[in-house]
Design a protein around this nucleic acid. Sequence first.
DNA 1: TTAAATGCAAATTTTTTGCGTGATG
DNA 2: CATCACGCAAAAAATTTGCATTTAA
Lengths: 153, 153
Amino acid sequence: MDPQVQHRVNEMCASMSELGVNVTPRRAKVLETLASTDCHPTVNEIHSEVRRIYPSTSLATIYNTIELLKETGQVLELEFSGSPNRYDGLRPESHPHLICLSCRSVEDMDLFEIEDVSLDRVSHATGYNLVRQRTDYYGICPVCQESDEAIRH
Amino acid sequence: MDPQVQHRVNEMCASMSELGVNVTPRRAKVLETLASTDCHPTVNEIHSEVRRIYPSTSLATIYNTIELLKETGQVLELEFSGSPNRYDGLRPESHPHLICLSCRSVEDMDLFEIEDVSLDRVSHATGYNLVRQRTDYYGICPVCQESDEAIRH
DNA sequence: TTAAATGCAAATTTTTTGCGTGATG
DNA sequence: CATCACGCAAAAAATTTGCATTTAA
């Protein structure tokens, strides 16, 4: 396993143990799946991946494990209505995403262009006790722009 | 009707006409409801409001009307999974929101603390053809903080 | 043997769709 | 009379829940 992935899995395991729950083989596989990709998988995609090793795994177990990770702040959940939620277990802290309206891909966006506004500053300015933020940019990704071009010609 | 509300309703009517659809009385009432509040109502809340005037209105008509508004960029849809979407018809352009995890309130956040990063700049930096953004801050609103205090004492 | 983890299926919730009726120009 | 609007109900999709069984310390 890639050392960076291993490191994240260890972090996630540690926080589950702190929560007082066991990291069973199925749960471990969920963590590994989340830590192994930056594609922001859906619950179904995680389910399929886990089933490759433990074919009898149910969807409820995936939801359950993700719930535990959410409680410990070890996974970022991007909610959508109508389409399945996407999960980021590689970088669970708040960070911006690029979302393609055509192919539904979700990419991490690096911050070089954006000055991050700290939650503390906004909390102070608004009186809210803020715990996380969500920043998404919606549009058409370069690949889909190409495809659209191709179709037009 | 408040002149600011009237102005927004007019804008929304105009864009629906441009789309080539009629602004029927029920649709007009949906627009008015959206323009009359900054509470970011759900589809159900809009439905209830419209039914006060047109009691036979169906939920499908609300969804249908909102779909038309989305097509013309005249309403901002905040998607949530598990809980109903929230709509902002007063300020349909992308702007940040404060979302209370306790009472589920959604408030507009004024920009004084945040330097807005233009879509153009991010588009250029990423190669995406971006059309909108979403920025949410999640936490506990001042009112709920008070209630929590009260409970503790 | 006791508690936690899990599979399974049903229930819930939100949104969408299809179809037939009715209003309107 | 032709088209658009709309109510109604079913369908679809995602997530949650309840319960019985299995697993494992």
